[in-house]
Amino acid sequence: ELSQDQQALLSYILEAYNKHRIPPDMAKKLLQEQFSTEENFLLLTEMATSHVQVLVEFTKNIPGFQSLDHEDQIALLKGSAVEAMFLRSAQAFTRKMPHGHTEMLEERIRKSGMSEKFIVPMFNFYKSIGGLQMMQEEHALLTAITILSPDRPYIKDQKAVELLQEAMLEVLSKFCKLKHPQEPQHFARLLGRLTELRTLHHHHAEMLESWRMS
C-alpha cells in the first residue's frame, strides 16, 4: 500500500498535472479550418511553445523540484521537454475525441512538413500508449519521472535528481500493483515507454537538424 506521504505526493502531482493543461483556445485552433503547410507549421510551433510553458508550470509543482540547483532545473526541463510533450500529446490522441477530430489532427500533423520517417514512429508511439490504457495518475507520474531523469546533459547534482525520481518510481510501482493486480508487467510496460520516448527524442533532434540545414 501507499504510505501516507506517498499518497499525498500522488494527489499533489495529479492535481498539478490536471491543473496545467494547454489553454482550450489554443487546442481549439487545431480543429478549425484548413491551413497551408506553412500555417500548419506555425500553429504547431505555437502549440509547442504553449506546451513547454504548461510543462514548466507542472514541473514547478513537483515536490522537491524547486529545491534543486537552478541551472539543473533548466537542464532537466531542456532535456525532457520534447519527451514530456510527446507523452502529453499521446494522451490527447488516445483520449476519446468527437467524431472526426482524431483524423483532422492526424491530417494537420501530416501536412506540417514533417517527413514520414518521423511521423510513423510518432503515431506508433501514440498507439502503444493507447494500448496501455493508462490512468491519469500514471500519466502524471510517468511525466514527472521523465522530467526527473538524472542522466540529462549538464546536470551537476545527479544524486539529488535521482532521489526525487526514485520517490516517484516507488509510488508508480506501488500504484500499478494496487490498480492492476492481474497485470504484474504493467509497471515494466510503462517504463518501457520511457525508452521509446528517448528514441522519439532522438528522431526529433535529427528532424530539427535537417530543418536547420534546409
Binding site: L42, T45, E46, T49, S50, V52, Q53, V56, E57, K60, H70, Q73, I74, L77, K78, A81
Partner: peptide
C-alpha cells in the same frame, strides 16, 4: 511572439513566472 524564442528562453521565462505576459 513566443514562437520566436528558443526552448531555453521559454523555460527560463516560465520558471521565473512570466508566462502570463
Amino acid at each position: 511572439p513566443a514562437s520566436n524564442l528558443g526552448l531555453e528562453d521559454i523555460i527560463r521565462k516560465a520558471l521565473m513566472g512570466t508566462v502570463e505576459e
